[in-house]
Design a protein around this nucleic acid. Structure first.
Lengths: 244, 244
DNA sequence: CGCTTCCTTGAGTAAATTCAAGACTTGTGG
DNA sequence: CCACAAGTCTTGAATTTACTCAAGGAAGCG
């Protein structure tokens, strides 16, 4: 199960310090958070929380990738969110979770005990404001994904997914773009994220390889050879403006 | 365009008083809100806000149904939200809108001027808390819809849509359930909501009519004849627990 | 080395779309 | 009051996209 690490790592050293739920907090407020925080690590594939569980803690993703998913009685599964570093797990004012949270890769979380965190949210505008911002970002991302799920072709879905990975992986300069990236998910997980089957995902990825849009080093590691064509395949506005 | 109505209707008489963004507000706080509010009405089909518009006001839906939608360059459209009475339009801390808001039926809004409202949110926990709850409710609904869009069949989508209409139309007692209801959307709008074509929507609705699950008085008005079978067709858990 | 998991590829199928034609509704103006 | 037009809805036939089923290959792990 989850490995507990030293709970008192320095927040000032934290890689997600400026983007996580604590982004706006003062030094004093960080000290207060430190009192109620614990690091936990999960191996790829491990469940982090199950649907219907009482919420014992809320957390920020420090490293790795976690997924939110919903499963139907007959096993059909749909991912409803992908949690990358700085994303937040848990909701103020809710005591249960509506979906399963699973470690897609090895994941490290900065966990806050539920009750004290809730209390602190009530007295710390820096926290509650940031929490609201994060919730609205998630809502925007969910809606972008609704368009993808409802209206895009398999090809467009794959291209959009790859583009999102590029955009969300801190790669800023255009020059730095063609660095090696890693698919954080298996073909099956990608399929569950995009509302496809794993075979369709495999076929589309290989097609984009043949068409010289992508280059694969192995099953997971790849480079984007042609960002222009990749974006053309997403079906999105030519003038960009996509938010994930 | 929009018709402006008397801005000082009594909040205490408001049909959405207990569920809207102002649900937790005290009498004093309602007085403050009254100062910055205006009622506006839109006819079915009229645009309320366009993507990219600067946000001049935020609003609660008092009556009627509005839709949030995103459109691709080639015209493919996906609804990303359906706003029923008590739902809120606009986001704290955002100055632009990411999608089009359109009146699906005739709609009445209780509009608040953007700046003063933002200011009041900052000083009124009752407002900011309720705003957070509404955002999280929307997020849950968006995720439920992602499962529908990504994994459900046409039949399941239609059944889920009808069930949502039943649940969200204040009908509480089981007995009162078989009252006459109205589809607030055209076949094409339903298709855009469910990620289908209008022909498929039409075929599925007529199939459910033939199978005696639904009964139509005219194109819009209908009754659910068999809630059990309707729910079975949604693909959701047999023990209910769906939230919209 | 052998097992399991993950991925690829092909062939056939099915669900939903596209295309097309016509019917019903509603509102407008003659 | 009727005719007509525009918008909406229905229904059928052909097509297409992605799915299902199936088999085998590659990679990772004990």
């Amino acid at each position: 199960m989850a490995i507990l690490l030293d709970s008192h790592l320095q927040c000032s050293e934290c890689p997600i310090r400026h983007r996580a739920v604590c982004a706006k907090c003062s030094t004093d407020e960080l000290g207060e958070l430190t009192e109620i925080k614990t690091y936990r690590s999960f191996r790829a594939g491990e469940p982090i929380m199950w649907r219907g569980d009482p919420l014992e803690y809320v957390a920020s993703v420090v490293g790795g990738v976690a997924s939110l998913s919903k499963t139907m009685e007959d096993g059909r599964t749909q991912m409803v969110g992908l949690l990358l570093p700085s994303d937040f797990i848990g909701r103020p004012g809710r005591s249960e979770i509506e979906f399963d949270v699973t470690a897609a890769t090895d994941v490290t979380l900065c966990c806050f005990r539920h009750r004290p965190f809730e209390k602190m949210v009530g007295t710390t505008p820096h926290l509650s404001q940031r929490l609201m911002e994060l919730a609205l970002d998630e809502l925007d991302a969910a809606r972008e994904w609704m368009l993808l799920l409802g209206r895009k072709t398999a090809r467009e879905k794959i291209a959009s997914f790859i583009e999102m990975l590029v955009i969300r992986s801190n790669v800023d300069g255009d020059a730095a773009r063609s660095q090696m990236l890693e698919l954080p998910l298996t073909r099956e997980q990608i399929a569950n994220f995009l509302g496809l089957t794993l075979e369709t995902v495999s076929r589309q990825l290989n097609a984009m390889k043949k068409e010289q849009i992508l280059e694969f080093k192995d099953r997971r590691r790849f480079k984007v050879l042609d960002f222009g064509r990749l974006h053309d395949e997403t079906g999105d506005d030519s003038d960009g403006g996509v938010i994930y």
